[in-house]
Design a protein around this nucleic acid. Structure first.
Length: 571
DNA sequence: AAAGCATGATTCC
DNA sequence: TGGAATCCCTGCTT
């Protein structure tokens, strides 16, 4: 299947400023940023000329120094690479295209000797995602064996359905970046979102305006949340404040069930945080793990801790992911900062007793069993590789596939996690946001990638000109062809184009602006009042139009800045 | 428009 | 072993 291409036109967008005062709290006064699309102008620097000038300047400096008879002070007037501090090249954005520092290893595959632009993992596919070569550490017998075991995976892969169009959004809904998302297990239009500040958002994206942010549940990062398997109005959340919260979504009442810091703050070295979390319906347990390698279990009925904590990862390292196998709930998968993902048998859980250790080259952000058979494992590591083990019953010595994909660690971003599409019967489609940007007709955009993990092929990359921030948090709906994205502080709901047109009468999107909006509204998502620039087309109208030869795209497509419903905006 | 800040894994000593 | 320096395509503010 060829990669799904970008949409050639974008629908009209209805923007509404949030009127209720439910917006998430935010200390600072906020000002919307500009979003006037300035098309990239390629500045072709005449290097030689510049060098001459610089040399002249340098010579002058040297001359002055000589006159004064003092020891020469080294003043470099040459432009210096901000990455390696050497001259002769410069790293950074040239328009919407990022130029790597050639002295550093490739930002994509991390190998030295080339840059992202010429990375072999990018060249063949134009957009940076290709399969790594399959490792040949397995014998043919392994594959035969594996085929016998994996019986419940369909032989013919159905066509993937990709939600590729933003249907509605809440902009600046959270007061800090979004850290996790969860769809309501039974109510199809409810999206739960957690943020770095510990706030919990509940948004009915069908009735777009129905949204709440709870700000008093946690005091810092909400790392993971799960619904109670026995009561879908109850949500558990694990936070870096060291507590598990249990929230009744009807009443908004919340209680802390576990507190790893009962004595309060005694400095960063003693503060405990909760990261990984899952629920085990069979055993009626909430499983959580902390920042120093321990696993805790809590009974969901009594809300009491059961048993002692168990060291499941290297002491002192974060355990960021926990998941019980969907088919065999006594199988537990964990992953963390010690560069391992591990499989455990919950019937004999103790330190050092893992069934399997899956080594990675860097921190493992996430590890998931496949959603239906539970027999595959998908991990996301900070070495820019997605790894897939095709069968937990087969040879687990090395991953079945490693897919090079840009999802680096950045301390200011929520860690990326590749997640399975729960609706894909073949258990091969996964979604993950992309770190490095693509020059998209002059705008640097960060697509969300859909990857066929059975081949490593990029199935689709979805993006939206108005989302200029990176989208590390993405969740596919368990039943509908819907995807939720958390990008910076905003939430987006994507649908497939056809579905979207069924839902919306016209080709219209509903965008709700939250957060304090300050003075003159102007720019992205915010052309509400007087900023009524009719220039909605986004085309290389630039001055020296020598840019984008390679981007052989239509000369213009409609960007449709998100408009207000108010009378003024539609011309 | 440029600079500053928030702040986590890793490396180095 | 532990603290300091380093970092890199961020996102926001002043």
């Amino acid at each position: 299947m060829p990669p799904t291409t970008r949409r050639m036109s974008f629908p009209r967008v209805v923007i509404e400023r949030d009127t209720d005062s439910e917006e998430s709290s935010s200390e600072e006064e906020e000002e919307p940023q500009n979003f006037d699309h300035e098309v990239e102008v390629e500045v072709e620097v005449e290097v030689e000329e510049e060098e001459v000038i610089e040399n002249e300047k340098e010579a002058k400096v040297l001359e002055d120094v000589k006159k004064k008879g003092k020891a020469p002070i080294t003043i470099s007037l040459k432009k210096v690479c901000k990455v390696c501090k050497q001259t002769g090249h410069e790293a950074g954005f040239k328009g919407a295209t990022y130029i790597d520092c050639p002295m550093k290893p490739c930002y994509l595959c991390k190998m030295p000797g080339h840059t992202t632009m010429t990375c072999p993992h990018r060249v063949s596919m134009e957009h940076g995602v290709v399969p790594a070569r399959k490792r040949s550490t397995r014998s043919p017998l392994d594959f035969v064996f594996e085929r016998q075991i994996r019986t419940n995976v369909p032989k013919i892969k159905p066509a993937f359905v990709v939600p590729d169009q933003v249907d509605c959004a809440v902009i600046r809904y959270h007061s800090r970046r979004v850290t996790c998302l969860e769809f309501h297990p039974t109510n199809n239009h409810i999206l739960l979102s957690g943020d770095k500040k510990g706030q919990l958002g509940v948004w009915d994206y069908d009735k777009v305006h129905e949204k709440t942010v709870y700000s008093n549940i946690h005091s810092c990062i909400l790392n993971n949340m799960r619904f109670s398997p026995s009561n879908d109005g109850t949500l558990y959340a694990a936070s870096s404040d060291g507590t598990i919260s249990c929230t009744d979504l009807e009443t908004g009442m919340s209680s802390a069930l576990m507190n790893l810091n009962p004595d309060g703050w005694h400095g960063p070295s003693s503060w405990r945080m909760l990261y990984g979390m899952d629920v085990n319906a069979d055993k009626s347990l909430v499983l959580v793990a902390d920042n120093i390698g321990y696993l805790y279990m809590m009974d969901m009925r009594s809300h009491n801790k059961t048993g002692e904590e168990i060291l499941i990862h290297k002491k002192g390292s974060k355990v960021v992911g926990l998941q019980c196998n969907p088919v065999q709930p006594e199988l537990l998968l964990s992953c963390g900062n010690d560069h391992f993902a591990r499989i455990w048998d919950m019937r004999k859980l103790e330190a050092q007793s893992s069934l399997v250790d899956l080594p990675h080259k860097r921190v493992v952000n996430a590890a998931y069993f496949s959603p239906r058979s539970g027999s595959k494992i998908l991990t996301t590591a900070q070495d820019n590789r997605i790894r897939i083990w095709d069968s937990i019953f087969g040879n687990l010595e090395s991953p079945s596939r490693e897919i090079v994909h840009s999802h680096d660690f950045n301390r200011h971003l929520t860690p990326f996690r590749a997640e399975w599409d729960p609706k894909d019967p073949s258990e091969s489609l996964a979604v993950i946001g992309r770190y490095i940007s693509e020059n998209y007709n002059g705008a640097a955009l960060h697509p969300i990638d859909f990857i066929d993990t059975s081949t490593g092929q990029l199935v689709a990359q979805v993006m939206e000109p108005n989302i200029t921030t990176i989208s590390p948090v993405n969740k596919l709906h368990p039943r509908d062809n819907v995807m939720a994205t958390g990008s910076s502080r905003s939430l987006f709901i994507w649908r497939t184009k056809d579905d979207s047109e069924l839902v919306q009468e016209k080709d219209e999107r509903k965008i709700i602006l939250c957060g304090k909006s300050g003075k003159k509204p102007k720019g992205k998502f915010d052309c509400g009042s007087d900023d009524d620039s009719d220039n909605d087309t986004f085309s290389p109208k630039g001055k020296k139009s020598k840019s984008n030869k390679s981007e052989a795209k239509p000369s213009s497509y409609t960007l449709n800045k998100f408009k207000t419903k108010s009378t003024k905006s539609s011309k």
